[in-house]
Amino acid sequence: MALLRFGADAMPSAIESSEGYWASVWRRLRRDKVAMIAGAVVLALILMAVFAPYIVPADPFSGRMLRRLRPIGTEGYPLGSDELGRDMLSRLIYGARMSLLMGVTPVIIAFGLGSTLGIVAGYLGGWFNTIAMRTIDIFYAFPSVLLAVALSGALGAGLTNALVSLSVVFIPPIARVAESVTTQVRNRDYVEAARASGAPGFTIVRVHVLGNVLGPIFVYATSLISVSMILASGLSFLGLGVRPPEPEWGLMLNTLRTAIYTQPWVAALPGAMIFITSISFNLLSDGLRSAMDVKQ
């Protein structure tokens, strides 16, 4: 559809152009030191996950039984070795892949499905809204940890089941936020004005609603990544997520639990990784929220 393209090509060059919304958000975010550090940590973790095979010092899957549970700083094992004699550093680096995947994917899925559901319900209103939101209330009646454990417990252990369960956990809160933001925007005069111009509903949603609701929903979704990281690794910790020998921080924490008397600090390492990841996402999300929370 060639309709409604407000690209730079449609704008004669003599026109003074103002800073767009996202440009101003970025400008404010850049000045937030805490958020920038958190963002750098997140970026580093992502790079670590992507390039894991190229940066690990040793094979994270093969271990030597004779060199089990070595302490931190052992020659050849900078962060010690695990209960099967595998290099902890390499496993922690590799673990970023599965842990980030498990933590971030459910939020992305829930963002897609939840915001679609919430925006449609909010824009249409009426009986569709009532049915959708009452159904969501039912899922709200379960504390998130319980719902995640119940679903993946019933579905059985495994990566896919864990991702499905976590996505189901995060759809209701995102849909609720999306619905309430959309309901607010729908009643703004500029949406009325767009309706008065005779634009079809789909065009109004695309041009006038999405631009104003996706930001707040997105910020909310980013605040869930931290929770999702903890929950996802928690499922693995319970044995409901990925299966051994896959390096995943939650699962590693589980298998090392027996080692807390012999090599306590090695055993605590995977949890520290979860904590660093979770707190970085949290601080980044906080920074993003305050950078976007400007009356415009």
């Binding site: 407000f6 704008m11 026109i15 152009s17 103002s18 919304y21 703004r188 005069d189 500029y190 009325e192 004005a193 767009a194 041009v207 006038h208 631009g211 104003n212 415009q296």
Partner: peptide
């Protein structure tokens, strides 16, 4: 309220 805050005037 009757102008979309995310769109330029034009």
């Amino acid at each position: 309220a009757s102008l979309n805050p995310r769109l330029t005037v034009e």
